[in-house]
Design a protein around this nucleic acid. Structure first.
Lengths: 244, 244
DNA sequence: TCGATTTCGTGAACGGCTTCACATGGGCGT
DNA sequence: ACGCCCATGTGAAGCCGTTCACGAAATCGA
């Protein structure tokens, strides 16, 4: 299962239930693009509650998340009609529904493999716990680092990877190892039962179709910015007066 | 200028030059989706040269980058026809052309603001220099960290931000500060002349239309994975036998 | 020289996503 | 109780991106 998979293997649900079924299960399917924005809405909503807001309009939420307001409405309508016309959305209700849709009601546990600078940063990042994601284990191959405590958790040997995943019921693996160890680490995580991988190593991981891989690549992001800067500078020298 | 801007302001070039012009300037425009893949190709090509490969087929490159081979051909054809039918692509030539397209021929300098764990990780990341991106300055607000050397570069006070940007001809700002300082840092970077921002702080930055912002958000990635896991588990309990 | 083989380049079809525009319908003031 | 106002929910249109399928072109061997 790749990042952009279009769910073609999913049993295509009938557009409508055969009759006036009282069971609302089997909603059509939430588009991938919407899923990617739900976390943004969630964060914006959490910020809003701190300011005491109790209802929010699609326009406000759109500004806070940096998207179009029609998009907000369409996204939220995918989860059901939780808004009130003429008023807006109930903030706490919306937080609950989005959290449920994202599967954050039962917290997920992650293992971070590779506790270098990046692993440290991830382990110490406070933004996980309040959002339904729990760090269950830190693993590293360097004996010098084992036993060290990072963010309240001890660093364990990567030899214990399989044990840790079982003990802590880990379902998500984060790869923060050097490039050379990334694929092998990935294979071990998958063999141990992990089905979701977040990869920070600058390499393309090869996995089975049933594994979900997402990739965060710093130099790719910078190169995309570089492209846009080049475009911009190439556009500056106006050529209208060359013709005469 | 947002990430997904569709270049509507760009003068739409005529599909063909009026006649057999020798000047190939004004290609139609490279799609954003293609730009996002060019860095992947570039990395795969660099790996290939190390193995001694001199030509590469679209199929090989596709496997290395984890995409479809038709996509590779379509992407590369956007930059011009650099392939040879029946043979493949010349590796070194392709590296040159992609680097040129991405604007990496004249190296870009970045400033990293916020030298915590994440800033350390970024500063120490070896993947930048060989890819046309140079770290020009490290800045932090904490007096205790100023003067420290990270990755061969001294940490300077954030008070010197404007000076550093001028001296080092920095065009890209990387925000690795706490959330609270992100927007203010962004504003200062923009005021100092930076037009591209890579934001690691979990917040939506508000900028003018002429500033290009990209965002890397760790918890968002994890929440997307969480959603897919929930989907998967909801699909597992087969319901065919409930009906009798 | 000629045909077989390989791989690029690309038109066309398809599907997904975004945006617009407006009907729908709930609240609030009088 | 009634009508005005406002924000949601959603068809429709258009755009962008992906994939298929095949023609074009280049090499190689006989």
């Amino acid at each position: 299962m790749t990042v952009d998979e279009n769910g073609s293997r999913v049993v295509s649900a009938a557009p409508f239930p055969p009759d006036g079924e009282p069971v609302p299960r089997e909603r059509p399917r939430v588009p991938e693009a919407t899923v990617a924005r739900l976390p943004l809405y969630l964060r914006a909503l959490n910020t809003l509650t701190e300011t005491g807001a109790v209802v929010v309009s699609s326009e406000e939420l759109a500004v806070a998340a940096g998207v179009n307001s029609a998009q907000v409405r369409k996204d939220l309508s995918q989860l059901g009609s939780y808004g009130i016309r003429g008023v807006g959305y109930d903030v706490t209700h919306l937080i609950r529904e989005i959290s449920r849709e994202l599967g954050l009601t039962r917290p997920r546990s992650v293992a971070i493999v590779g506790i270098g600078n990046l692993g440290h940063a991830l382990a110490g990042y406070g933004g996980f716990a309040p959002r339904g994601v729990r760090i269950g284990a830190l693993l590293d191959a360097d004996p010098a680092r084992i036993g060290e405590t990072v963010g309240g958790l001890p660093v364990r040997s990567v030899d214990e990877l399989e044990d840790a995943i079982r003990e802590e019921q880990i379902t998500i693996g984060v790869i923060a190892t050097p490039v050379g160890a990334a694929q092998a680490t990935c294979d071990r995580l998958v063999a141990a039962g992990v089905l979701s991988i977040l990869n920070f190593a600058p390499t393309t991981l090869v996995v089975g179709d049933d594994v979900d891989v997402r990739k965060v690549d710093l130099s790719v992001e910078l190169q995309i910015l570089s492209f846009h800067e080049r475009q911009r500078s190439a556009r500056l020298p106006v050529r209208t007066e060359v013709t005469w």
